[in-house]
Amino acid sequence: MNKRRLPILALPLLLCFSTKGFTQLEGEWFLTINHITERLGIINFEYREGELQGFVDGGPIEFSFDDDQLEMVVDYRNGGGRLLSRTFTGSLAGDVLSGTLIAPHDDTTGTWYASRVIPETELPPAPVDMSGLWSRISAGMEKVFLDYTDAAQAKVDQYSYLDDPGLRCVSPGLIRLSGWPYPMEIIQNEKQTTILYESYREVRRVYMDGREAPEFYPNSAMGFSNGHWEGSTLVIETSLLKSAFVDQAGQPVSENARVEERITMSEDGQNLRSKLTLHDPENYQSPIIRYRQWRKTPDVTMMEYDCDSYPFYRGLEMEGMLEEFLDRMGEQLNN
């Protein structure tokens, strides 16, 4: 418990734990919420050291469960980066959890629904055409507090916004960029799926021919990606990432991290959904999950990402922080 940072509104729930019926909750649940936009996530209840613990998208939550009534508080950040929480109340009926949620910050409400995750059966490849221009609809639950290792907690504690490479026009990396609210274009052929992101002009080449990365292939912001089809799901495995962050709160991603994306298209071809799983045991005790959703927007025109780092440095200089920034970068390069 001491390794986890919990949201402010979760604390009162510590007082109302009950063990009755906990085994009914154990396992993974696929969560859909309708709050401002539809968002998807994974709830996981698992026993650790004899105690049932709750997680959303790999980050710890506090919850109470009594007489089939569940209450849980899940932290998130909004588009402006503000730390907020949603309080979920609902009930268990058979293999379904459902109820209502409230975001106390602005009194907005919504509904939620969760069904047990059914293990996927292996399917022969059945590629679908995902080519075209897509605009993001939502980026999942945006859970802030994650299941940190001690090393990761120390990194989070030391993080400063000065460490954000995006502010100086350097790509923020696969996990953050794939959730950015700007368009992407997909171009497909049998050997390669190419994803062009407007943000930071990133280009991903996802090799579908099973090739391996050449010797000494450098780590990079978007890594080295192999793809294959499981039924009509495009599965992308990525490694050789540069150190980066999951989010703007400084949750670290190590160079040894592995990312799996499972991308599916809706039957009408108008929506894409990706379940991104970050496996990074150096930093997290549970894999971190992010669900992204996009809508097909053929009428949107991609823009060049005209980025200039001068205003950032000028602002630091005006504030008297330029030297601190340079010292900080120097220290990080030497470690």
Partner: peptide, 13 residues
């Protein structure tokens, strides 16, 4: 606890 997250976000910082 709340401060540990918000203070690190670029906007909140």
């Amino acid at each position: 606890l709340a401060g540990s997250a918000t203070a690190h976000h670029s906007f909140a910082a």
